[in-house]
Design a protein around this nucleic acid. Sequence first.
DNA 1: GCGTTGCATCGACATCCGTCAATACAACAG
DNA 2: CTGTTGTATTGACGGATGTCGATGCAACGC
Lengths: 128, 128
Amino acid sequence: MSKSELVVLGQDAEPAACCSPMVREPLDAADAVDLARMFKALADPVRLRLLSLIASHEGGEACVCDLTGPFDVSQPTISHHLKVLREAGLVGSERRGTWVYYRAVPGALARLSALLAIPPAARPGTPA
Amino acid sequence: MSKSELVVLGQDAEPAACCSPMVREPLDAADAVDLARMFKALADPVRLRLLSLIASHEGGEACVCDLTGPFDVSQPTISHHLKVLREAGLVGSERRGTWVYYRAVPGALARLSALLAIPPAARPGTPA
DNA sequence: GCGTTGCATCGACATCCGTCAATACAACAG
DNA sequence: CTGTTGTATTGACGGATGTCGATGCAACGC
């Protein structure tokens, strides 16, 4: 793992590709599979808390060493959860010597947020 | 089931109770359990598509009879998924004679959307 | 009341998933 | 190279979940 896995900025350009609010039009099956995978990554309390710890951490990133303490689960479990988040595209990681740092992927969060948003001018099902 | 289960409007008042953006501060454990449950309900492609069908349906609601056709799964599976969505608080239902109508709960979606939002003036970890 | 339609529930099954102890791998210092 | 620290992976285990056919329940018309 000599190359950085930390995502390049520019992810922000991606949200529009898939996810206008779901209340506006039905999701297609392919998008749904992709999105369900991301929601599945969020569907565990420990992972939610990990993500929020990472995302809100000073400097916008957190070292695994900052993440193994606050939970009542073992280190391998934390690693496993981080892997799930990483593979879902919600976080990126970068090794700096012994230490591994994780950072949230803003574009991915924004994508999900946009999907769930209620359009301001319309309510569900109200023609926009 | 003679009383309506369709949620009363006013749910919009609730999002603020829990979910400012997770990138702003770490989630507490109790909130994480509650939110993970909702994300779990979204963590299945069929359920995502069901929710989007319901939410985008004309009139803001859909009858189960509108929902059993578009998927390659059986009617009991659709019912099961609708139950999961309902129990997660993402949809409400109302029986009208033989027909049962489902409607998305805007407040619940807005709550999740707000949780995942990236604050406009700050990026993850940037002091606001 | 009976037959029909719509929808929910039940029970079984195969698959998936969170957790852990043990272990492997990466990086570093001496 | 060895020992140490940090982190990821492995394999086992018990529990959770999506799916189905069968069935039960709700509502309706006759």
